[in-house]
Design a protein around this nucleic acid. Structure first.
Length: 283
DNA sequence: AACCTAAGCAACCGCGCGCTG
DNA sequence: ACAGCGCGCGGTTGCTTAGGT
């Protein structure tokens, strides 16, 4: 048995919207809101349109603050990075780009970026495995499970930093900016039960998966994957990025969650750095 | 100028999920 | 616990426009 249609297709108008319809929808939503019911909205607004069509038109075109076209290099990078990390979850990707819609991002990807990325794939993915098997060499990690909480519409530029109790699939993580008036990330509470100062390079017990240059806010961050046998007890620690050798660290298995975490950190360029010998914890 | 093809984009479709009664 | 409903999402379609022959 098929699903019941959301509206009577014979009695609703389809195809491109005319300016009068746009004006009617815009006027209605601005004056009355959606009322939490898109299905009933077209009738109330005097439109012979399907509610879903109205919603789409509003979200993708009429909503204030929508940007069309003219994607910047920076936006390209964000889209590519997130696509690598979470796949075709356009709404999530769009939430990282103010003024962009999922449809816009999707279209841009399908028409431009996909080709651009394929052309430059050798450059993007030519990562050499310098130490162990944790470093990925393929461009398509499995997408995150749908149930995983994702961060939406948050500004992780370090000027206005906030993050709390995120579950990235490799352990929970919380952090906060204690000095919100400055552009410096002042405190990171990793909540992982070890002190970054105890991280020392040595025998390869750790592998650095990523490094981010936060020089603009006086520090840097690196991401580590611990070997599966590494036992980190629960607890908390505070890491500072006010000097250039501070680290953001967590136990994990090198899965896609780490990438999602990095993206939420606002790390635009993720290098794969693996210091010779790796790192280990001191007692 | 006319035709053809590819690219770009708006809109539609159908499914999954969450909420509610 | 279950069914119905509406919303949101990703995939796909089809129209329009630009560029080439």
């Amino acid at each position: 048995m098929g699903r019941a249609p959301c509206c009577d297709k014979a009695s609703v108008k389809r195809g491109p919207w005319c300016p009068e319809e746009d004006a009617a929808l815009k006027n209605y939503v601005e004056n009355h809101g959606t009322g939490g019911n898109w299905i009933a909205l077209p009738q109330r607004a005097g439109l012979k349109r399907c509610g879903k069509s109205c919603r789409l038109r509003w979200l993708n075109y009429l909503r204030p603050g929508i940007k069309h076209g003219g994607f910047s290099e920076e936006e390209d990078n964000v889209i590519c990075s997130l696509f690598k990390t979470i796949g075709s979850r356009w709404s999530v990707i769009a939430s990282h780009l103010p003024g962009r819609t999922d449809n816009d991002v999707k279209n841009y990807w399908n028409t431009k970026l996909k080709k651009k990325m394929q052309a430059g794939q050798a450059d993007v993915y030519s990562i050499t495995n310098r130490n162990d098997s944790l470093i990925r060499q393929t461009p398509s990690p499995p997408p995150l499970p749908r149930a995983m909480p994702l961060v939406k519409s948050e500004n992780y530029g370090f000027g206005s930093f906030s993050m709390s109790s995120k579950n990235y699939g490799f352990g929970s993580f919380s952090m906060s900016n204690e000095n919100s008036s400055s552009s410096t990330l002042t405190s990171v509470d990793a909540g992982l039960g070890f002190d970054s100062s105890k991280l020392v390079p040595d025998s390869g017990s750790f592998t650095t998966l990523a490094h981010a240059d936060l020089s603009s806010c006086g520090g840097s961050a690196a991401a580590y994957a611990f070997s599966p046998s590494q036992d980190i007890s629960a607890g908390s620690s505070s890491l500072s990025t006010e000097n250039s050798n501070s680290y953001v660290s967590w136990p994990g298995n090198g899965g896609g969650g780490i990438d999602a975490f990095l993206m939420d950190l606002g790390l635009e360029s993720v290098d794969l750095l693996c210091p010779p010998g790796g790192y280990s914890l001191l007692d």
